Amino acid sequence: MTSILEFDEDVEMFRSVVSRFNAEVVAPQVEKMDEEEHIDPSIISALFETGLMAVETPEEYGGAGASFTAAVAIVEELAKCDPSVSVLNDVHNTLVNTCVRKWGSDYIKETYLPQLSTDKLGAFALSEPSAGSDAFALRTRARKMSDGDFVIEGGKMWITNGAEAEIFVVFANAEPEKGYRGITAFVVEKSWGVKVVKKEKKLGIRASSTAVLAFDEVRVPKQNVLGIYGQGYKIAIECLNEGRIGIAAQMTGLAQGAFDRAVSYVFNDRQQFGKYVGEFQGMQFQIAQIASEIEAARLLLYNAARIKEAGGEFVKEAAMAKLIGSQVAEKTASKAVEWMGGVGFTRDETVEKFYRDAKIGAIYEGTSNIQLQTIARLIQKQYTLR
């Protein structure tokens, strides 16, 4: 029998490509990017040139035409080196490209997928100051003009890739009197007047931009409505469910990256009382426990990915994967710092960065409480007889 974590040749090829990409392109710049709080443009360019930014996009639009599992594997692998680079790739692939590919008209796909495949970074603009966990309490408005075009007015915050993106999937309410049924999605180009008001200074994933955006009378052509007018909420729900698998991949990769560094250190570098720290039973039990939890998180991750890829209902599985992935990432990174002792607590080592980066997993693309609520609601539905 083979492991369910054995993948087809295409997925393994992408893993191999990303492993080399991490070593040659990302790793030399991780510390500098974290200190300066921005991703070096050369890395973004290299992600496009290596074919990692259009994984599921059909070849006719310049993409790789690969599977969702391949996209997830890339996110996981990148996170082993730098979760900031990982989330940039994840949002672009699993949110922006997916929205354009699944709900875009022929015009939108022909216009934007080639750009998103080659050199234009994308961002997903849903969150607002009053619309976080309550994602549909949007105040950004889309006013329909007499010629059918729209004018978007409002602001967004917590937008990943916001500082570097040139193409945005934007959610705005075109008919506020209808509540969430007035929400409509648009594809908006930065050059039309999208302004980056602020780039947040964060605890972790500091190189990844998290921006506040302003839309001041931004005119959007009618042909840039994404999907059906008034059904943007459906697009947001579907995309976020899928995106949670991406974040689970990021957190699982982060956990593995922290584990790899710390375990290598305790078995090869740090000695106390005449033997390597990793040889003490108390340490070995902790390592075994964490290794098992990472494996469990990875199994949840790829279970959700495969159900989604097969066209099944995956909402509960995605929520579980994100919930457990974020918990395991935080626990692993914390233990990694402890295992490496004083060295682990310094910024000369990568594990303190993994520790800071891990916290966001419990917050973005649905907090842990929202995941628990989702899981509980679906379990209740499953077991309720009336």
Rank of each mutant, 00 (worst) to 15 (best):
302 Y>E: 02
357 D>V: 06
339 W>H: 12
359 K>E: 01
349 E>I: 10
359 K>F: 06
306 R>T: 10
336 A>M: 09
341 G>Q: 09
358 A>M: 13
331 K>D: 04
314 F>H: 12
308 K>S: 04
308 K>T: 07
323 L>N: 01
352 E>R: 14
324 I>Y: 15
306 R>N: 07
334 S>G: 08
342 G>Q: 03
331 K>I: 08
319 A>E: 03
329 A>I: 13
299 L>T: 11
300 L>T: 11
315 V>D: 01
329 A>E: 13
320 M>D: 03
311 G>P: 10
306 R>G: 01
329 A>M: 15
303 N>Y: 10
323 L>V: 04
337 V>D: 00
325 G>M: 10
333 A>V: 05
348 D>S: 03
337 V>I: 10
319 A>S: 07
333 A>N: 08
355 Y>T: 07
317 E>R: 10
317 E>V: 15
325 G>I: 11
356 R>G: 01
309 E>D: 02
353 K>I: 10
355 Y>F: 13
345 F>Y: 07
304 A>N: 07
355 Y>M: 08
314 F>M: 08
346 T>F: 00
314 F>P: 12
325 G>C: 12
330 E>M: 13
308 K>R: 14
316 K>P: 00
338 E>Y: 14
315 V>M: 04
341 G>A: 02
314 F>G: 05
318 A>L: 03
360 I>L: 07
336 A>R: 11
309 E>Q: 14
329 A>F: 12
340 M>N: 08
335 K>C: 04
298 R>C: 01
300 L>K: 05
359 K>Q: 06
305 A>S: 13
306 R>F: 03
347 R>S: 06
312 G>K: 10
352 E>K: 12
327 Q>H: 12
356 R>M: 14
325 G>Q: 03
345 F>H: 07
332 T>S: 01
326 S>Q: 09
316 K>R: 13
324 I>M: 14
335 K>I: 13
360 I>W: 02
339 W>Q: 04
345 F>N: 03
345 F>C: 03
304 A>S: 07
355 Y>Q: 12
349 E>W: 06
340 M>L: 15
305 A>F: 09
319 A>Y: 09
308 K>Q: 09
344 G>I: 15
346 T>G: 01
315 V>I: 07
312 G>L: 03
358 A>R: 14
307 I>M: 00
327 Q>G: 06
310 A>V: 15
303 N>C: 06
307 I>P: 00
325 G>P: 12
357 D>I: 09
298 R>I: 04
346 T>L: 00
314 F>D: 04
358 A>Y: 14
305 A>L: 15
315 V>F: 01
348 D>R: 09
322 K>A: 01
342 G>D: 07
322 K>V: 09
303 N>F: 05
341 G>H: 06
327 Q>M: 13
343 V>G: 00
309 E>H: 06
357 D>K: 15
300 L>R: 05
312 G>S: 03
318 A>G: 05
298 R>Y: 02
347 R>A: 14
302 Y>F: 13
316 K>A: 00
321 A>S: 11
302 Y>A: 02
339 W>N: 04
306 R>I: 04
333 A>W: 08
332 T>D: 00
314 F>S: 10
359 K>V: 11
342 G>P: 02
315 V>L: 13
353 K>G: 01
339 W>V: 12
349 E>T: 15
